[in-house]
Amino acid sequence: MNIPGEKKTDDIGVESKNLAKPPQIIGLTVNGRQHIFKVGVDIQPNTTLRDLLKERLGLYSPKEMCQGDGSCGSCTVMLDGKPVLSCLTLAVDCDGKSVETVEGIAEAGHPLIDAFRNNYAYQCGYCTSGFIVAAKALLDRNPNPTDEEIVKALSGNICRCGAYAAIISAVREAAERLKGG
């Protein structure tokens, strides 16, 4: 197997035992299922988490509104329970981590999905998956958020249609339903 980095290290002619080594196998959990990828075969060092989810696992929910600039939040996924930008996360950097996407949130029957529909919290829908992931992360750590806390938690996501007011209502409704309301 051609391991990236190995050839170069020999070329330099330094003792390799005190140098950094390339990762060879990446194991990660996506929506509760285990996956293993070989670096250099299944994924390359420059494969982003978003590319991996889309191309290897067929999960199309992380979008790319800002073309990978990290400024729109539409590719947001949960990494070990925290919302991150999957377009600026390297797949090789996710070894041993657990990823949750909107597909997983919907599969688990989370009330956010219905709440977004009930409140018409989208127009074109392109930003929706990013918003739902960010909102889920908020409700996980704070089941009873104020409007201000909702706005802050969603401040990394952009909706060009301007559905913000409806999105806040949707998150509020989901929080109510989680409490059994």
């Binding site: 990236p4 140098l19 950094a20 080594k21 990762p23 060092p45 420059n46 073309q67 090789v92 950097d93």
Partner: peptide, 26 residues
């Protein structure tokens, strides 16, 4: 979306490893 430029990715286990590798690649 533009793909990220190619590079090699190495995991450092200690500060020494990181610094030695940085020095080795000049």
């Amino acid at each position: 979306m533009r793909t990220i430029r190619k590079f090699e990715f190495l995991n450092a286990r200690t500060i020494d490893e990181a610094v030695n590798t940085l020095a080795a690649y000049k």
